[in-house]
Amino acid sequence: MPPAPAAPELLAEPGAAPAAMPGPARRRRPSALWRLALPFGSLLLFLALWQAVAAAGTWSETLVPPPAKVWDAFLAVSTTRDGVRGYNGTYLVEHLGISLRRIAFGAGVGIALGVLLGLVMGTVRWVRSLFEPWISFLRTLPPLAYFSLLIVWLGIDEEPKITLLAVAAFPPVAVATTAAVAAAPRHLVEAARALGASRWEVVKDVVLPSALPETFTGVRLAVGVAYSSLVAAELVNGLPGIGGMVKDAANYNNTPVVLVGIAAIGVSGLLIDALLVRLERAVVPWRGRT
């Protein structure tokens, strides 16, 4: 009988790379062009459906303006027309910049406090028992429930707006950090203690790196909650500000400007979330690999 054929890897020369596996074992990653085409295709489909609904005439243009009118509103609030500068004397980019500064300061304070308290709650059990019910209570409250109280306490200037955004961003980070710290690998903690590490060194070198991935998730959630609270924060004396612009335009049934403001909030939120994802990949490169 003829000898059986040798396996391909046995016939390969020493040091040569193994042959690629044929068939479905190799998964092809979608190309970058395809990944870009999907969101743009969905956007074009959404615009086409929007135009079709507006052209059907089922609702008035006050309720569902066509995309062309929204584009005209975008140009109007972004430029000077007939001596009118933007919306209420302020360009769209300036409205957005003022709101982003409020979010950066308010959400930044809430995130910093949430991370610090989460670290303490995750490592000290009695502190967690003391503060966890209050954080859960605060997390379930809608921003409008206590905004009026903040106005009574702090007035109608910047203080109640920033405080509202800080209070809204605080609970998600505190909850995520507490859970991540409490779930730190016990064997690593005990090994560090056995090697003579102090309590602070255990937290800094073991607990904190283990908690960082979930903490970043909490930060992203906190920024989203702050964005969803933006219009509520700018209900009173919110102009200039993108949320105040949306509220003021809604008072006059100026739906195109309302949609422009909503789109500006959404697009800026997507960009900020993308930046947070990039930052997370840079700071926590081991996420998903351990």
Rank of each mutant, 00 (worst) to 15 (best):
P2R: 01
A4H: 10
P5Q: 04
P5E: 02
A6R: 07
L10H: 05
E13W: 15
A17G: 12
A17D: 14
A19D: 06
M21V: 10
A32D: 11
L33T: 09
L33P: 06
R35C: 05
L38V: 10
S42E: 03
A48C: 06
A54F: 00
A55I: 02
A56P: 00
P66S: 00
A68I: 11
F74D: 05
L75I: 14
V77T: 06
G83C: 05
G83S: 04
G83L: 13
G83F: 03
G89P: 02
A104T: 01
V109W: 15
G110K: 03
A112F: 01
L119W: 03
V120E: 04
M121Y: 09
T123H: 04
W126G: 07
S129N: 15
I135F: 02
S136H: 15
S136D: 15
P142N: 01
P143N: 00
L149S: 01
I151W: 00
L154M: 11
E159Y: 10
P160R: 04
P160V: 07
K161C: 08
T163F: 12
L164N: 02
F170N: 10
A176N: 15
A176R: 14
A183K: 13
P185H: 02
P185C: 01
V189K: 11
A191Q: 13
A194K: 05
L195G: 06
R199E: 03
A211Q: 08
T215R: 05
T217R: 04
G218D: 10
G218E: 09
A222W: 13
V225N: 13
A226F: 00
Y227G: 01
Y227R: 01
A233T: 06
V236T: 10
L239N: 04
I242Q: 02
V246K: 11
A250F: 00
N251F: 14
V257I: 03
G261L: 05
I265L: 12
S268E: 06
L275I: 14
R278Y: 05
E280K: 02
A282F: 14
R287M: 12
G288N: 14
